[in-house]
Every structure is written in structure tokens, then in C-alpha cells.
């Protein structure tokens, strides 16, 4: 049970770390992959909280479809983020 509590603390911390990575990266494809990993960790958290329905929906929509749409948008524009000023 102590292991489960530790996982409940570690998984949100990893999610915050991957979200910060997605914000700080200048390569937009890499940022998209970081966002997808955050979504996958969220679906893992849902699965541990015994909500497998929500976990499957989150993995399908958040990790796969959002990534596909963002990659399509990046291929139509530029890959790297521009420096401000």
C-alpha cells in the first residue's frame, strides 16, 4: 500500500516535469512528444485510480489524436520556435 501511495505522488510529479519540458523546448516536435508523454502518464494515473474507461479514452485522444493533429500543424508551419525580440 505504501508503494501505491508513492506511485500516486511520483506520477503527478513526472507529469509536471514533462509539461515543463514541453514548455521549455524550442523544437516543437519534441515538445509535442513531451505533451504526449504527459498524456500517457495521466492515463496511467487514471488506470491506477481504477478508472480504466477514462484511461483508454485519455490514451486514445490525448496521446494519439492530439499528437497527430499537432504534427500535421507543425509540418504546415515551421519546426522550431522563434526567439522573442
Amino acid at each position: 500500500m505504501i508503494l501505491l501511495d508513492a506511485i500516486h505522488i511520483i506520477l503527478p510529479l513526472l507529469m509536471i516535469v514533462s509539461a515543463l519540458i514541453a514548455v521549455y523546448l524550442k523544437d516543437l516536435v519534441a515538445a509535442t512528444i513531451a505533451l504526449a508523454s504527459m498524456s500517457l502518464l495521466l492515463s496511467l494515473e487514471f488506470y491506477i485510480l481504477q478508472a480504466p474507461d477514462v484511461a483508454i479514452a485519455e490514451a486514445g485522444v490525448g496521446a494519439a489524436l492530439t499528437t497527430a493533429i499537432l504534427i500535421l500543424a507543425i509540418k504546415a508551419t515551421k519546426r522550431t520556435e522563434e526567439e522573442e525580440e
Partner: peptide
Amino acid sequence: AIVASGLAL
């Protein structure tokens, strides 16, 4: 959503 993500792939 799973099938649609396969099609998007």
C-alpha cells in the same frame, strides 16, 4: 478513438 488514432497514424 483507438481506431481513429490508427487511421491518423
